[in-house]
């Protein structure tokens, strides 16, 4: 029997909205105001605080390909092909809002592998297209047997371009491998800070719902590359301090419906913080 735990989410009539559909799907520069531009530039992974209806929280059985995909992503990090932050940028942001919300969770991880391997010139897009077609044919007549990878050869692991990080961090861990490289932290526990309202371009891990908010430093965390650098494989950049910042819920959300004492904490890189005046 099909499990229909979230039947309320499929009630389309209650979700009907007045739609303003523009037939003209080319926009002239003078027709985009700042707010609309920001909406287009918002990184789709940044969903905190977006309105949504209650849904039944479900469990899910894991597909074999989902576990394989997860493991491939992690092994690519282990062997220095990418860092997990590059994976997050490609699979959670670069693919755009429609695909972000429309593809399954691990479908996006898979998309990120493909994109990374092509972008970093480990494979050509032609090779990928041919192989996908070949694998599909292998199973087309029901003669493929159990589904599994069957590499034609074991490649030469030397001569593959890899990052420094997967070797530099051995025995230390990450972020410990960046310790001592960012100088003195600018903030201490108890300091009042404001999250800067920097523009969003391509990637960040500073949530939109925190920008402009005042909070208090709860912990001086560690030194690390900023996500904006790490996500683009910029190992040459300077590490910086990170802080766990505590915010009052009532300062983050208008008409917060919980209690006045409720709080939220998030971990922010130094470039995003300034002293409260």
């Amino acid at each position: 029997m099909t499990v229909v735990g979230n039947s309320v989410m499929g009630d389309l009539s209650s979700q009907l909205r007045v739609a303003l559909h523009r037939v003209q799907d080319w926009t002239y520069p003078d027709q985009l105001d700042h707010d609309t531009f920001q909406a287009y530039m918002k990184t789709p992974h940044d969903v905190g605080g977006e309105p949504d209806a209650p849904a039944l929280f479900e469990d899910k059985e894991e597909e074999e390909w989902e576990l394989n995909t997860f493991v491939t992503c992690e092994v690519l990090g282990w062997r220095g092909i990418w860092t997990s932050e590059e994976r997050r940028r490609i699979g959670n942001v670069d693919l755009g809002r429609t695909n972000y919300l429309g593809l399954p969770y691990y479908g996006r991880w898979l998309w990120a592998i493909a994109r990374c391997l092509v972008d970093k010139r480990h494979i050509t897009l032609g090779e990928l297209i041919e192989r996908v077609s070949e694998v599909r044919k292998r199973y087309a007549e029901g003669s493929g047997g159990p589904i599994d990878a069957a590499p034609r050869m074991t490649g030469n692991i030397d001569g593959v371009a890899r990052n420094r990080h997967h070797l530099d961090a051995i025995g230390m861990g990450d972020p410990q491998c960046f310790a001592g490289t960012a100088g003195a932290p600018s903030f201490s526990v108890g300091d009042a800070v404001v999250v800067r309202e920097l523009p969003t371009i391509f990637y960040t891990r500073t949530q939109e719902y925190l920008r402009g908010a005042s909070g208090t430093i709860a912990k001086v965390s560690y030194e690390s590359l900023a996500p904006e650098d790490e996500a683009f494989d910029r190992e040459d950049q300077q590490a910086e301090w990170f802080y766990i910042v505590r915010f009052r819920m009532a300062d983050l959300w208008e008409a917060y419906t919980g209690c006045a004492t409720d709080t939220l904490q998030a971990e922010i890189s130094e470039r995003w913080l300034q002293p409260a005046v």
């Binding site: 690519l76 282990w78 391997l117 494979i123 090779e127 069957a150 590499p151 030469n156 593959v160």
Partner: peptide
């Protein structure tokens, strides 16, 4: 398959 054949891992 491609990743293994190319020696990535």
């Amino acid at each position: 398959e491609l990743a293994i054949e190319k020696g990535l891992f």
